[in-house]
């Protein structure tokens, strides 16, 4: 037990800096020390059919966590949509996982508004993906190996169809060791898409 004096000292010390974290979240590419199996969560397609981690094995994958209320997420969806036909032909799955509470409705409406043509609808049916994958900010994009293990994650928005991103994703497909230096540049939206 703390005595009163040290309790007050502790209270004071803690009260001074309540950390300002929201604007200071580390962004960019983070490489996992060892590939990390993903916790299984209930992911469905727009027909309500299971479309989760079990079906992602066998090929490396890019899994982008987004929500319709997240401006930078919505801003990068068109780049992911353009990326999908390019990189899937080379052997990478591209999955956009919508965390909206409204489920497929939110995803479908956003896709329609943005003119998304290639991305399939994936929804976090039980609203567990954010916590299960340790994602505290959106957008966060997980890069998985063919065993559906996380080898890296990108926090923030990126031009996913840009040259730096393609180099990174081709290294993932080739099973090469990813490095922080392979990070595509962060993209910050300048207007409400």
């Amino acid at each position: 037990m703390l005595d009163r004096r040290s309790f007050i000292a502790a209270a004071l010390a803690s009260a001074l800096p309540w950390p300002a974290v929201a604007g200071k979240v580390a962004q960019g590419l983070f490489i996992a020390e060892t590939p990390k199996p993903l916790t299984n969560v209930d992911i469905r397609d727009n027909q309500g059919q299971p479309a989760g981690i079990e079906s992602w094995r066998g090929k490396p994958a890019l899994v982008n966590l987004w929500a319709s209320w997240c401006l930078p997420c919505v801003a990068e969806l068109p780049a992911l949509d353009r990326l999908k036909p390019i990189i899937e032909a080379e052997g990478l799955r591209v999955i956009a996982l919508c965390l909206d509470r409204s489920g497929a409705v939110g995803a479908v409406n956003s896709y329609a508004r943005l003119g998304i043509r290639n991305l399939a609808v994936h929804v976090d049916h039980q609203r567990q993906a954010g916590e299960a994958f340790g994602v505290a900010v959106l957008p966060t994009t997980l890069l998985l190996n063919e065993k559906a293990e996380e080898v890296a994650r990108f926090v923030g928005g990126a031009a996913w169809d840009g040259p730096e991103s393609l180099t990174l994703l081709r290294a993932l497909i080739a099973g090469k060791k990813l490095e922080t230096a392979m990070s595509p540049p962060l993209v910050r939206p300048t207007a409400n898409p």
Binding site: A22, V25, Q27, A67, W69, C70, L71, P72, C73, L99, R101, R127, G130, E131, V135, A136, V137, L138, P139, T140, V155, G156, G157, L186, R188, P189, N192
Partner: peptide, 22 residues
């Protein structure tokens, strides 16, 4: 506390609150 125009990344605090209420 927060804002809806998150410029680079958006905290998921409101989602967490909604799930907690669930």
């Amino acid at each position: 506390f927060g804002y809806t125009y998150c410029p680079d990344v958006c905290p998921t605090a409101l989602s967490t609150m909604a799930s907690a209420l669930d």
